[in-house]
Design a binder for these strands. Structure first.
Lengths: 346, 346
DNA sequence: CTGAAAGCGCTAACAC
DNA sequence: GTGTTAGCGCTTTCAG
């Protein structure tokens, strides 16, 4: 029965060295004589000693913990990224504190405050658009941070992500290339979310080149969930005119929308084309498989971790990591019905 | 420009009170005169003061952080639970440190050590089967913990979960009730995983009642992923004899298996019945929708959080929370082909 | 209800 | 290389 945990002082005493040496043996082992190192290690072993993180943090002002604030954990794309982040961080001896704000900027700020109070050495945020107070706090606390997922609408050098504008642009070009002219978008709120804005902008740009525009009634705002997709389809389908394609903001929405199509006996892609965004694993399991944009979520996690580690080490590292987010064509995007017909007629 | 963060001493000075009073004003506001409280609050405001968590932790031996170690984050069921856990904890002023061990017991131990070093006030673990060192450490550190997901194979009172045995038993009864006699299981490794064992046992119990048994070659061990399910089907289908139903350990596997069925033109449930476990959202999106067992993952998260808070507060609380995990029948489980035929013949 | 003072366990100069 | 010695910023007795 151990009444109280062993401290470094106990270790030092048992090893017959000073407190300082014991401390060094643990944190900078190559700055002590092999002999003392061995003694200390033996003592540690014997006592089952484990460092007290709080004390270490207080004295060294390093917590060996970083925090990541995600919009939600309910999207596999973020889960994947967290997984990668966590694994990589682990390799550096860092722990991960995670939180989510459910797409509410105010909530994000609260969460950040709580995290700051607990103390972390670095921060990972998703997206570039955050309440100004967020940036003030990171500055005030001198907290290194990396922005992930997006490189849109920002000057900040430490971003690990892709251009949502370009990705959406490329996808829309593809869509236009198939001959679609009645294009709808099912996205989330643009509030505090530059990804949604950038994608809208990218889509618009491609449409404009083809002489098209996005009709306001065909831009529907729905939650980034299966249910959101279902809702969106209902809204779109009950409208005056019907689009020939709907561009979804996430695969989750697209999958839900596809399911609603099935319920309503709308054939995809014959009656309606659908595209997603993220390329989650399920995207290839729909019937037909979903045409989408592949977001390198694992790589974002891994590189964000590495980049943050570099920042924390004071190595200002390379700037902005722009990853690729290619369109992956599968079965839900095809020529619109009217064109098929005319093609056949020729 | 703030060269250095304000400390409680600064606050006290500005407020014209002692360090002690300032401290109390923050942590036990009703033990100070309203006047001093107000002074302190004003000072805090003015200085933009934020507590230093490390110092607080060191002095009070409370970190206001709890850790949760999950098998993986790559299963929506865990993501959901984490979400609920995190939200609930947040309401109590606690942060969540998360980690995963990818179904490797040794890894879990390492992770726990790192977490212990960092310091947490409580711990959430998934399952009841962990390396003995895990339990030794929690004891040695006097760390309150709750075991989730399962109440099988354990004496430990602080569990929040369901009986995997019962759930599997109920499902198997249902399967047997449909007339299946050639039953296969696609599960994960039983190593360090009592859930898998309990489910096998429950399944066996139900089969035995019907005079059946599980043929060893029909127990396939595959990763808990889409791909795992695909693999399992291939293995099972290429074998000497073919089962009439396969019971999957997770919906992820079941969905992958279903997809492989489609690829191989195996009709479900005509040629083969399939069941899942978890009832993730996608389970109702397969074609036909998946018959599965509904695991109350959100509730597990919420109640685990509450229970842990009680433990931390020294309220030993109520014991073992046994939740319900009902079978949800959808379309992938039906009578086996031979019975259908004979039914028709009659 | 408040102030003073003693640590919490560790790191980081600083001399030796 | 190693020992000594200040703190890190806060909580918590203990008197008053």
């Amino acid at each position: 029965m151990k009444p109280t945990r062993a401290t470094l002082a106990d270790v030092a005493r048992l090893a017959g060295v000073s407190l300082g040496s014991a401390s060094r043996a643990l944190s900078v082992p190559d700055q002590v004589k092999p002999q003392t190192l061995a003694n200390v290690q033996r003592a540690v072993e014997q006592l089952g000693y484990v460092r007290n993180g709080a004390a270490q943090a207080l004295a060294s002002r390093k917590t060996h913990t970083v925090a990541a604030i995600y919009p939600t954990l309910n999207n596999p794309i973020y889960a994947d990224s967290i997984q990668a982040l966590q694994q990589t961080l682990w390799g550096y001896g860092y722990q991960l504190l995670i939180a989510s704000h459910e797409y509410k900027p105010a909530r994000e700020l609260e969460v950040l405050r709580a995290i700051l109070e607990r103390g972390v050495d670095g921060l990972v945020l998703v997206g570039t658009d955050h309440p100004p107070e967020v940036f003030e706090l990171t500055r005030q606390y001198d907290l290194p941070y990396v922005l992930t997922w997006s490189v849109d609408e920002t000057q900040y050098p430490h971003c690990v992500g892709f251009s949502n504008f370009e990705a959406a642009y490329a996808l829309a070009r593809r869509i236009v290339g198939f001959g679609h002219r009645r294009v709808a978008m099912c996205g989330g709120s643009t509030f505090g979310n530059e990804r949604v804005r950038a994608r809208q902008a990218g889509t618009r740009a491609a449409l404009r080149e083809a002489g098209l525009d996005l009709r306001p009634e065909w831009i529907v705002e729905a939650p980034f969930t299966f249910e959101g997709g279902r809702q969106a389809l209902r809204e779109l389908w009950d409208g005056e005119a019907r689009p020939s394609v709907v561009i979804c903001g996430t695969d989750l929405q697209a999958i839900g929308l596809l399911d609603e199509c099935r319920a309503k006996r709308i054939r995809v892609p014959e009656d309606l084309s659908v595209t997603g965004f993220d390329d989650i694993e399920q995207a290839r399991l729909t019937q037909p498989p979903l045409t989408t944009v592949r977001v390198p979520s694992l790589e974002i996690g891994t590189r964000a971790a590495r980049h943050l580690m570099a920042l924390i080490d004071g190595k200002d590292g390379d700037d902005e990591i722009v990853l690729d987010a290619p369109v992956v064509e599968r079965g839900t995007l095809a020529k619109p019905a009217d064109l098929r017909r005319s093609a056949r007629e020729q």
